[in-house]
Design a protein around this nucleic acid. Structure first.
Length: 483
RNA sequence: GUCCCGUUCGUCUAGUUGGCCUAGGACACUGGCCUUUCACGCCGGCGACAGGGGUUCGAAUCCCCUACGGGACGCCA
């Protein structure tokens, strides 16, 4: 009997909804639907320090906005739950114990400090980085003594050495790894939570995942997963590693060099269908070469053989062209509805009106005074550029200050009046700046002009994506100035 | 540094069972047409098989080496 196709996506709720997540979700979704299989959404929130429910919700909302949906997940349940890894701790601990019993794993009592010392030494010596296995062969007595002493420990995979581990990837030739090259990966952290590697293998097994479609960055840790499947005696899923989305300079797509938040694209006026279409042509193409296609077209024509492995550069310009195609083919009525929903919603207008209310003399002042809330990127005229550099400061200083602010805002879940104020205050405090060093430059960067509504409220209404994008643009513009 | 993956126009790609490839399309750029203007649309231009060795009658397509790019090397995922 043919095994049911079950695939999964495992976003980690530690940041804004990422285009890379949407990209991988698209291909998983297409693959599953095409084979009458199921797509599982599993929240990989084993990093307790960085995971937030707020982000989980944002990720789900974004995917749904794009029109991507799943069959099983924390929101809709399913037969193999819970679908949040933070709620599956006991399961992982049980399997980690099993590995211990089988001799495929061991307790390691090394401290974090000890480990970073090892790494530093290795780096200095130019030798391969990785755990040196010093805790591998502790005697029963030593282990018991450590346990009795209440020393914290982690559980590590005991990679069989010597040996070779082969990874089969549906898109590539078999890949051989020398086991000497594979680290004794930590499986269970000192806080009792599993690392990605353990959680993934255990969950994929328990959730009956048949195909693992994920990004290429995982190839080098796949042998660890293979070793785990073998240690448990489980069948392995089919691995399929998609090429990585890239920045212009070919590095892995990142927020410093590219807008990567789905929220950004939403707020910048892109349509879900256009985004999905564009993502679909990253590493894949229609047999007839057609570049404009729908998810239904993809469903009909998708085949893994047509995936090309070179890492595609995410080109916003081409996305924009595609988006224009979609926009223009809508009827005016439909477009009107879209504009009212995404751009000029009552909700949005209700936020904006109070901010300009008291400075209005004629109704149409509203348009000129609030245009910057609605348009995408701003351009800065000469006066604006000049005013972004505070007196007695250089453009370089101005850039550094705005940069500090961007970084602060990046750590925020949502930008609100309060968090905007807090961020600005923190940047001033941490960098020894006065209000004049940062407030006016920020105002101009964010609104394009010296005269605008109260800054914190304005930033809150503009939202995180527009604010950080504009700050980045302002920083880039300042670079052109002689320092 | 070590291991791994990848490599066709600036970018996304077609090409996959070697000949139909003097390498096709799209974005961008650019010339023109249409148009009161702009945009759309249409027509044209620019522009690539990383390099070197093989194998073969014949290689973008197969093999090897080199180069370059990227990824991984976390008690992050």
């Amino acid at each position: 009997m043919e095994q049911e196709v079950r695939v999964r996506i495992g976003p980690s709720p530690t940041g804004d909804p990422h285009v890379g997540t949407a990209y991988i979700t698209l291909f998983n979704s297409i693959f599953a639907k095409q084979r009458k299989g199921k797509l599982v959404l599993r929240i990989e929130d084993t990093d307790r320090n960085r995971s937030k429910l707020e982000w989980e919700n944002m990720i789900c909302d974004s995917l749904k906005w794009l029109g991507l949906d799943w069959d099983e997940g924390p929101d809709c349940g399913g037969p193999y739950g819970p679908y949040r890894q933070s709620e599956r701790g006991d399961i992982y601990r049980k399997y980690a114990e099993e590995l211990l019993d089988k001799g495929a794993a061991y307790r390691c009592f090394c401290t974090s400090e000890e480990l970073s010392e090892i790494r530093t030494a290795q780096r200095a010596a130019g030798s391969p980085l990785g755990y040196d296995g010093r805790g591998r062969d502790l005697s029963e007595a030593e282990i018991q003594a450590n346990l009795d002493a209440g020393k914290p420990y982690v559980i590590r995979l005991k990679v069989p050495r010597p040996g070779t581990t082969t990874v089969n990837d549906a898109l590539r030739d078999p890949i051989d790894f020398d086991n000497g090259q594979i680290d004794d990966q930590i499986l269970l952290k000192a806080d009792g939570m599993p690392t990605y590697h353990l959680a993934n293998v255990v969950d994929d097994y328990l959730m009956k995942i048949s195909h693992v479609i994920r990004a290429e960055e995982w190839i080098s840790s796949t042998p660890k997963h293979v070793l785990l499947y073998d240690a448990f005696g489980w069948d392995k899923p089919v691995f399929m590693h998609m090429p990585l989305l890239r920045n212009k300079d070919k590095s892995k797509i990142s927020k410093r060099k590219n807008p990567v938040s789905i929220n950004y694209y939403r707020e910048a006026g892109y349509l879900p269908d256009a985004i999905l279409n564009y993502l679909g042509m990253m590493g894949w193409s229609m047999p007839d070469g057609e570049e404009k296609f729908t998810v239904e077209d993809m469903l009909r024509e998708f085949s893994p053989e047509r995936i090309s492995l070179g890492g595609p550069v995410f080109d916003v310009q081409k996305l924009t062209w595609l988006n224009g195609l979609y926009l223009r083919e809508e009827s005016s009525d439909a477009l009107l509805a879209t504009i009212k929903r995404e751009l000029l919603s009552d909700e949005k207008l209700a936020q904006v009106v109070p901010l300009v209310h008291e400075r209005m003399e004629k109704l149409d002042d509203f348009i000129s005074q609030t245009a910057f809330f609605f348009i995408g990127d701003l351009s800065y005229d000469e006066a604006a550029m000049k005013a972004m550099v505070p007196k007695k400061r250089t453009p370089k200083d101005a850039r550094a200050n705005l940069e500090a602010l961007v970084e602060k805002i990046d750590t925020l879940g949502e930008l609100t009046t309060e968090s905007a104020k807090a961020s600005l205050d923190a940047v001033m405090e941490e960098n020894g700046l006065g209000p004049r060093d940062i407030l006016l430059p920020t105002r101009i960067a964010v609104t394009g002009t010296k005269a605008s509504p109260p800054l914190f409220e304005t930033m809150g209404v503009l939202g995180k994506e527009k604010v950080r994008r504009r700050l980045r643009n302002a920083i880039a513009a300042l670079k052109a100035l002689p320092s």
